[in-house]
Design a protein around this nucleic acid. Structure first.
Lengths: 184, 184
DNA sequence: TGCAATTATATCGTGTACGATATATTTTGC
DNA sequence: GCAAAATATATCGTACACGATATAATTGCA
């Protein structure tokens, strides 16, 4: 299959940029297929997973899943409209909006993994372990090269895996104060 | 550095999906920075480059740059509004819209590469050749795994591959018939 | 010739993603 | 105690990306 069209010549840099675009598109299509098969896109699934460990504020969640605050807010709003997430203001700090999985959101999340396993993940799992590791390492390497550019002048402090840990820390202000309207 | 990767255990599949998302975001930010630095996003630059070889129709161009027809049309419309691309109907086949670089579009394209070189590409070029090759190969491998999913139910007819190739065949109807309005 | 099938593009709706900026709330400094 | 600074979220505008579908033009076949 080895892509005949991509003239590799000597400019690997450009070839990599193109390959990344292609991969992005494939991931996007994967996400859209996910949406069709069980009603959740990749990012939505990611956000639900992040919320599985306990309620959390918008900004905090954005950092966890490595999205900007507006993007995270948008996805949360969509999930709220579908009743998968419940949002409420913290009463200890009324600036914050706490996001929690609703019962149906939690159910949906439980149903998702097997479906996610179906295609790409299964195929990937079929590769040799060291091949899997190599692909993962390459991705992370490239992401670092790109991020370096992004964080050029940034503090560098950040880090912290997307996985976060357990950290249930639902804290007690998640006691479901008045629910926020979903109006736009 | 090297991603703490808390829970690598055996679920590399999920880790890869996350790493891909991270890379996508980095590429997107790169593109936005490109826009700030010289007014063209990554996809716009890609489209201009594809047009550099000669005029071509929307669908043809979409296949070349591996985008869907609506996406390609959208980007072309944007480029037209900025006067970087000229669109006109072919008079031999009035269904087709031929897209050509305008003078300023061509100029912009000539000015772009050095700027593109600045950050990521330069950093990438600093890696060892075999490292570069390995990263590229990994990306292509992953894209294939993803694409396989996409093309799952596709005809698969072409045993020879989709290829597309160069296909200059601009043919002579690129003689600039009445320009199409840019109205939306 | 004439109408159906095909092909090409355009348009609509949805979703992701961001920066900039507006708004609400807390915290801090005086 | 209260205005200014800091923080958190919401909103707006832009761009990308797609599938579905509408529209226009050509081709093929009866």
């Amino acid at each position: 299959m080895s892509e005949p069209s991509e003239k590799v010549h000597d400019d690997l840099g450009e070839a990599v940029l193109i390959a990344m675009r292609r991969l992005m598109r494939a991931v996007d299509l994967h996400s859209k297929r996910l949406m069709l098969s069980h009603g959740l896109t990749g990012p939505q699934l990611l956000v639900l997973k992040a919320l599985d460990g306990g309620a959390c504020a918008v900004g905090e969640l954005a950092r966890k899943v490595r999205l900007s605050q507006p993007t995270a807010a948008e996805i949360l709003a969509r999930l709220q409209r579908r009743g998968l997430v419940v949002r409420s203001r913290s009463h200890s700090d009324r600036r914050c909006v706490l996001n929690r999985l609703s019962a149906s959101g939690a159910r949906k999340l439980r149903e998702a993994p097997p479906l996610l396993q179906e295609a790409f993940t299964a195929r990937f799992a079929g590769l040799a372990q060291d091949e899997q590791q190599r692909l993962l390492t390459s991705l992370q390497r490239l992401a670092e090269l790109m991020d370096a550019e992004t964080l050029d002048a940034a503090p560098l402090l950040s880090s912290g895996g997307v996985v976060d840990g357990a950290e249930p820390g639902v804290s007690e202000e998640a006691v479901v104060p008045p629910v926020i309207e979903g109006g736009h």
